[in-house]
Amino acid sequence: MVYKIRDKETGKVYEVTIDEETNEITVYDVKTGKPVKTVNMTIEELKEAGYEVEPV
């Protein structure tokens, strides 16, 4: 599923895909559409880390 996340401190917005089964999150560069990095976190962990998470 695709989400937009926003860093509450910097205001930067990222587009991510989240595999609900493995909790693998792939972060994409919004301008190029290319993957930047992959992390292993849940949506709740993202929120605790200071991100706003919205489904696209």
Rank of each mutant, 00 (worst) to 15 (best):
V13L: 08
E52K: 04
N40V: 14
I18N: 01
E9C: 15
P35T: 08
T42A: 03
E20A: 13
K37W: 15
K47H: 07
R6K: 11
K8N: 05
E48D: 11
I25C: 07
V16Y: 03
Y14V: 02
T38R: 13
Y51R: 01
I18H: 10
Y3I: 06
I5H: 00
I18Y: 15
A49T: 08
A49P: 01
I43K: 04
E15N: 15
T10C: 08
V2A: 12
E45Q: 13
I5F: 05
M41D: 01
D7L: 03
E45R: 07
R6S: 05
K4R: 15
T10V: 00
E44I: 09
P55T: 09
I43T: 02
L46P: 00
I25K: 01
D19Q: 06
Y3C: 09
T32N: 07
N23Y: 05
V56E: 07
T42L: 02
V13W: 12
E24G: 05
M1W: 11
R6T: 14
V53E: 03
E15M: 15
T17G: 04
Y28V: 07
I18P: 00
T26N: 04
T17P: 00
E54W: 15
E9Q: 13
E20T: 14
I18E: 02
I5S: 00
T22V: 06
E52D: 10
V36I: 14
K34L: 13
E52T: 07
T42G: 06
E24P: 01
N23T: 06
R6H: 06
E24Q: 14
V30I: 14
E52Q: 06
N23I: 04
I5G: 00
Y51N: 02
T10A: 01
E15I: 15
N40C: 13
V56S: 09
A49I: 08
D7Y: 06
K37L: 14
G50T: 03
T38L: 08
E15T: 15
K34E: 10
R6W: 12
M41R: 05
E54Q: 09
K4W: 15
G11T: 01
E45P: 01
V2R: 15
L46Y: 04
V30K: 09
P55H: 08
V16I: 15
K31I: 15
A49K: 10
V13P: 01
L46K: 00
V27G: 03
D7F: 07
